[in-house]
Design a protein around this nucleic acid. Structure first.
Lengths: 127, 127
DNA sequence: CTTACTTTTGCAACTGTGTTGCATTAAAAT
DNA sequence: ATTTTAATGCAACACAGTTGCAAAAGTAAG
């Protein structure tokens, strides 16, 4: 349904995304805002942000829902073909906007969505 | 820890995988065997099968754990770089053993595991 | 075939993420 | 200021998967 009203929850969430370029777990956002906003509200506000193309969501290696800022999306066009990277050491997740993954044609099947989750060691953890 | 004893649970599970080439949800297996085996036992037996390289597991679009037969794995070598395909209409999931996805090098990060979940319409549903 | 040893199982209770229904609050339009 | 309806809080729920522990069942040894 998208965002109809500018509420404080929406503002607080956008602030969180501005602080870093990482994909943040929904539970993490619930926790960060727990003094100010109810968890149901956080989940529902994230849905609205996603409907409007401001953020996109995906599941990480643990099946936990994560949200990250969108670069060039809006209410009508959401394209998220970029892979995501999760560090197996620190657990952080990044969008790899610059990397493109080539998906081969699969006979008999029509592909509409591609989810790529790469796992390994990030720069910070590889010292 | 792997399989130490040939139990009926292990046999029942392998039978299920022999029936089709699809990736079966753990909950689905629990349900199929619910008259014969306790759900905890199913989860633990699947773990053992995976340890021995007989099956591999991954999360589907809903974050549900699915298991599928391995082609050429064993206790020491598990390689599962093939993509998985989930039909958005019927929900079925297949291993695309033949398709290979090309993952670009990512500067500063070492990739150890690649999970690719393609979503779209399968042959049966596209009529 | 009996015994001893250890893996596997069943049960019950629990975790954790995410969802639902409903009454209340608060944007925003009139 | 009043009305409208989106957004919120709360409590209860849903559901996949896990844990601890006692009982059962493989397996090897005698």
């Amino acid at each position: 349904m998208g965002i109809q009203r500018k509420t404080s929850t929406i503002g607080l969430l956008l602030d969180q995304f501005k602080k870093s370029n990482q994909a943040i777990a929904a539970v993490e956002l619930v926790d960060r805002l727990k003094e100010k906003v109810n968890k149901t509200t956080v989940y529902r506000a994230l849905e609205r942000l996603e409907d409007d193309g401001l953020v996109h969501s995906f599941l990480d290696r643990d099946g936990i829902k994560r949200y990250a800022i969108c670069q060039d999306c809006n209410k009508d066009s959401h394209v998220h073909d970029h892979p995501h990277f999760q560090c197996t050491n620190c657990g952080k997740v990044d969008c790899l906007e610059e990397a493109s993954v080539n998906i081969p044609k699969i006979s008999g099947r029509t592909i509409h969505k591609t989810d790529v989750l790469l796992q390994g060691i990030c720069e910070t953890c590889s010292v």
